[in-house]
Amino acid sequence: MSLLLEASGVSRRFGGVQALTGVSFSISRGEIYGLIGPNGAGKTTLFNLLTGIYLPDEGSFGFDGHPLSRLKPHQVAEAGIARTFQNIRLFANLSALENVMIGRHVRTRAGVLGAVLRDSATRREEAAIERRALELLEYVGIAARANEAAGGLPYGDQRRLEIARALATDPKLLALDEPAAGMNASETLALRKLLERIRADGTTILLIEHDMKLVMGVCDRVLVLDYGERIAEGPPGEVQKDPRVIEAYLGVPAAA
């Protein structure tokens, strides 16, 4: 398996707070890679650095053989990393279908002239956008709600819609920020199946998640952060037994 993403020595401060300190890891193609840690461990900060919302103070990311450094968020998306947000950020007043169609923006070209003239190339592209968007809604299982306003969908469907929108950008790496938050057990199970299917279809996944059962069940490897530092990495079964991890989660040193 070849490397898809490689982070080396990534650090970031906010004012007096060191949010991340020299974090390194790498993700191989086709993996589902978990990112866990207590609240405030720096998981979302890592996401924001990866997707270009913040710049790292030190360290860098290499993605698909190229450095990601200094890319703006839209360039990161173009390079092939798509993300979802911890506190869902859909285009709430647009329909579910439109949300996914917007995800196709970065892979399509029509400009002002095409929009006004509606030449055959534009019409073909527009039809392809709509078709692909519908497919993706089907894929995540909410095709029936295509024409409803995204903001009015049930919570679990909104999470799925965010995944569909991210997939619409044809990502090589799908970065999910707590996709199971607020989901009930059966929804989480369906999510797990969806993640496995996405991986099987060739997209690598980076997953921040608090639901340990989901993480342990679906991830190939897990990175554990605490106070902005990497404290463990490895297959879920091993990480679970790591005394530092237990200490970080329980707040007391694990009995030897």
């Binding site: 997707t51 919302i53 703006k72 968020p73 839209h74 998306a77 173009e78 798509a82 993300r83 947000f85 950020r89 859909l90 285009f91 709430a92 007043n93 647009l94 439109e98 169609m101 917007i102 995800g103 196709r104 923006h105 970065v106 892979r107 399509t108 029509a110 400009g111 002002v112 095409g114 929009a115 006004v116 509606r118 534009t122 592209e125 527009e126 956008i129 929108r165 991210a166 619409a168 950008t169």
Partner: peptide
């Protein structure tokens, strides 16, 4: 015609949530 096009949708996205629009590659 502009409103109902790729460009028009990108405008809507920016109007709705600029951060999300950026993350979608706009």
């Amino acid at each position: 015609r502009l409103q109902d096009s790729r460009i028009g949708r990108a405008w809507e996205a920016v109007r709705e949530d600029e951060t999300a629009a950026r993350a979608m590659g706009i």
